[in-house]
């Protein structure tokens, strides 16, 4: 165990919307907070995202969604993680997600949802907290 190694985090956008300002901004915040961020870009399938997460051995996946398809896409990502024996990867999300859907997402297993306007420090603190007990090899 080496305390100097910060966890790796995947940031990506599943689905069809191409507005990546939010995803890139969160990637930048996390980079500046000392994380190693694997950025996958826009319009990725849940399969591409999960396969990437497994190959990169990330501790967390952050998905940005502005399309309204968050319930379907998060469900699929969580299913695929389960199929690949990677349930321990923390999944969080952000974007234009209606507050009424947040409890449902959390119930499904999404650790945190950051809606527009969430301060950067709050995002970093929440992710640090989620990953506190995640062992880095």
């Amino acid at each position: 165990m080496n305390a100097a190694v910060k966890p790796r985090i995947l940031i990506g956008k599943p689905g069809l919307d191409g507005h990546d300002r939010g995803a890139k901004y969160v990637a930048q915040i996390l980079r500046d907070a000392g994380f190693e961020v694997i950025y996958t870009g826009i319009r990725r399938s849940p399969e591409q995202i999960v396969d990437t997460a497994v190959q990169e051995d990330v501790a967390a996946i952050g998905l940005s969604l502005l399309s309204g398809a968050h319930l379907a896409l998060f469900t699929r990502v969580l299913e695929l993680l389960h199929d690949r024996g990677a349930d321990d990867i923390v999944v969080f999300g952000g974007g234009t997600i209606p507050p009424k859907d947040i409890p449902r997402l959390k119930e499904m297993g999404v650790a945190e949802v950051f809606t527009p306007g969430t301060p950067a420090r709050q995002i970093v603190a929440a992710i640090d907290d989620c990953l506190l007990h995640h062992s880095v090899m």
């Binding site: 910060k6 990637a27 000392g34 694997i38 950025y39 996958t40 990437t52």
Partner: peptide, 10 residues
Amino acid sequence: TGGALLGDRV
């Protein structure tokens, strides 16, 4: 900061 943005995969 020690952080990194790994973007070759894009």
